[in-house]
Design a protein around this nucleic acid. Structure first.
Lengths: 210, 210
DNA sequence: GTGTGTGAAATTCTTCACAGCG
DNA sequence: CGCTGTGAAGAATTTCACACAC
């Protein structure tokens, strides 16, 4: 058996996956690692190395069959599996996510929204079922939610995460700046804090000058 | 002179920076690498190693002076410098960012919003100056904008980036799924695509089982 | 004993080099 | 000759171990 796939490679393969879907829509049936590298902004070597973790899939001398490669990525990374998600916190950001049209054909279905403020639950226009925050763990378990999005203010983030994990989610996207603590090995957390990203960009502006 | 700071360390120091500010608000004047590691979810070794790139700053035997460490991070990463930002695309997400209260005391000021749809410019209630999309590069240059946020649909993202770069931004936060191409060495791009993150989490759910 | 600073070891990841196929 | 697959070299990063100060 082949070694396990490195984390950075997993990330790049997910990006590659989306690129391949776009290329197929454009009608591109064959593609080389050089072309993929140009589109992805990386060297052809890296593209081949990454793809190679999927096993042999290219045709030596003539590049990759776009559809076959796409299928191979999808299969290996388990992207053919549909997953349910939910959103905790229905302020501006949370409701923007509920309404985000790109989830439509993505394989991910947002099946619930939560907020502690009852007024918000009544105000928001959406087809997605909305619940009070105390119901998080029950609803997550009952609806088989695997991914939770945290869109609450920082002080409420840990509590939201605890309830999501209690309900059994296996992935969390945390939009708050709070550092989430957890001791469950099976849960992955991704942080998406725009102010943090501003800070990192700012630091690079300062340091890259050297 | 000490070696240049590795990228992952820069990222972690930015996270540390915010943690230190929170700790100071809580009144914690001294802290050890062990405590920091617990809060950050990393080993104490790593915390010390990261901090060490700033030069000596701790007191051997008794940890770090919180304020001094904060100042040192801020100084070294240039976070004391205020920077202007702008948002391109004023849909749900874009206007949520314009209204995001956390920018208030962050050191970042959003000084402009752009959209190609004139109706949106008239509908949105905000104190931030709004412009039509064709004005991007002019306004960016005139207002000295260093960071641009892309919150437009994928097909419009490359054009938005080109105009931002033309205006002279040095950092871009791209919320669209589009892969931005650019050949300017001095511009950093951060991608924040929620569907991509769902995909990566999903892949880990599949692969971590092994 | 507790806790930092730092060179060295270990690990992970990236880049390269080239065999081999079309 | 262009292109993939892959083992090996190289680089970057993380982890460790221990000297030294309080």
């Amino acid at each position: 058996m082949r070694p396990r796939i490195p984390r950075p490679t997993i990330t790049r393969l997910c990006i590659l996956f989306r690129l391949l879907e776009d290329l197929l829509i454009e009608g591109k049936t064959r593609i080389s690692s050089t072309e993929l590298g140009t589109a992805l902004g990386v060297r052809p070597h890296s593209v081949r190395k990454d793809i190679n973790y999927l096993g042999e899939v290219g045709d030596i001398g003539s590049g990759y069959d776009t559809a076959r490669l796409r299928d191979r990525v999808r299969r290996k990374l388990g992207l053919d599996r549909r997953r349910n998600a939910c959103v905790v916190g229905l302020g501006r950001l949370g409701s923007a996510i509920l309404a985000y049209e790109r989830f439509a054909n993505s394989g991910y279905t947002i099946v619930a929204g939560f907020d502690s403020n009852i007024n918000k639950l009544e105000t928001i226009r959406t087809d997605i079922e909305l619940f009070e925050a105390y119901e998080i763990s029950d609803v997550v378990r009952r609806k088989n939610v695997e991914i939770g999005v945290i869109a609450v203010p920082a002080p409420a983030a840990q509590e939201a995460a605890d309830r999501l994990i209690e309900g059994g989610v296996r992935g969390i996207v945390n939009f708050s700046p709070a550092l989430i603590r957890h001791n469950v090995e099976t849960v992955n957390i991704t942080n998406m804090d725009i102010v943090r990203e501003f800070t990192i960009l700012s630091a690079h502006m300062t340091l890259d000058r050297e």
